[in-house]
Design a protein around this nucleic acid. Structure first.
Length: 291
DNA sequence: ACCGCACCCTGAGCGC
DNA sequence: TGCGCTCAGGGTGCGG
């Protein structure tokens, strides 16, 4: 599931396939809530546009266009952004995977889940946006276009300090885990990195915000940044459907301490990792190390 | 005002 | 073998 590190890895990988290229044609699936900007409008507005910088805020990607418009992408739960040259069995359906000989890699062919496909005037590789569960988003912002969901975002998690988190805890009663997932406070932290950060900081996910001390907030944010930077280095977490744009798997899932390790031994003390539900999300922690 | 929860979607995995 | 149920979860929006 793409969180900040996976989105950043995606940004770095897809940037060379976007920057400086002129869009020639746009292919999409039919209109759905996936398209905040209707497909018809994308097909009308995007051709002829040259792509400039590709940036990221939280889990959102933004591609600046030469006319001042911005193409905004959110990978949602299962979004995959990659170039047409990528090969990976992870990009294929289970049925297509089963048909492959062991070890064989096949080039990806656009399927019913490939909601956006950008073709370029230079005739080089296409850029594809595939999303099985359609929780992702595509939005074309006008020159001075504003979007509430983007303006609501808090400071990017890599730029944050404990101060933003601590000041938010003073106003809330909810569990600290829920606050970490609140994108309007700190943007980019998702379920995996929230659990990992709370483990490293020794704070139980269910602890009410008001009972989290300032020093603990600093520790949580520092830990979140540490695990996310490390995850970016290793190519992100390839749990669920995430795959980097070059078709490779990330490596961070192998470094998880607690996430999806219910019943396993805590790496610090050997206690069994426990799973509870906090704010409709499964949360994993060590009952001995996290108070 | 704040918080919990349903909902959007599809495929994997499991039990019968 | 095959069907049907459950679960996963980011973000939004509603209702208590």
């Amino acid at each position: 599931m793409p969180e900040l590190p996976e989105v950043e890895v995606t940004r770095r990988c897809i940037e060379p396939f976007l920057v400086g290229r002129v869009i020639e044609a746009v292919h999409t699936t039919p209109a759905s809530y996936f398209f905040l900007t209707p497909p018809g409008q994308l097909k009308k507005s995007l051709p002829g546009r040259k792509v400039g910088a590709v940036s990221r805020h939280g889990k959102y990607l933004r591609a600046l266009l030469d006319n001042g418009q911005t193409l905004v992408l959110h990978l949602g739960m299962t979004g995959q952004l990659f170039s047409s040259g990528a090969t990976s069995v992870r990009l294929l359906s289970a049925a297509a995977r089963a048909a492959l000989a062991p070890g064989e890699q096949a080039a990806f062919k656009p399927d019913k889940h490939t909601h956006l496909r950008l073709c370029f005037a230079d005739g080089g590789p296409d850029v594809l946006f595939r999303d099985v569960r359609k929780f992702g988003k595509v939005l074309l912002l006008g020159v001075n276009g504003r979007d509430e969901r983007l303006e609501r975002l808090g400071i990017d998690a890599l730029e944050a300090s404990g101060i933003e988190l601590f000041s938010a805890t003073r106003k809330k009663r909810s569990p600290i885990k829920s606050l970490l997932l609140d994108q309007s406070v700190i943007a980019g932290i998702g379920n995996i990195y929230a659990d990992e950060a709370l483990f490293l900081a020794g704070v139980k996910p269910t602890r009410p915000c008001r009972r989290v001390k300032s020093a603990e907030c600093h520790a949580i944010v520092a830990a979140a940044q540490r695990v996310m930077l490390r995850s970016i280095e290793t190519g992100g977490s390839s749990i669920s459907d995430y795959v980097a744009p070059d078709g490779t798997d990330g490596g961070y899932q192998d470094e998880r301490q607690v996430y999806a390790r219910e019943g396993e031994a805590c790496p610090k003390c050997g206690h069994k990792i426990v799973r509870v539900v906090v704010g409709q999300r499964s949360s994993h922690y060590c009952p001995a190390c996290q108070k």
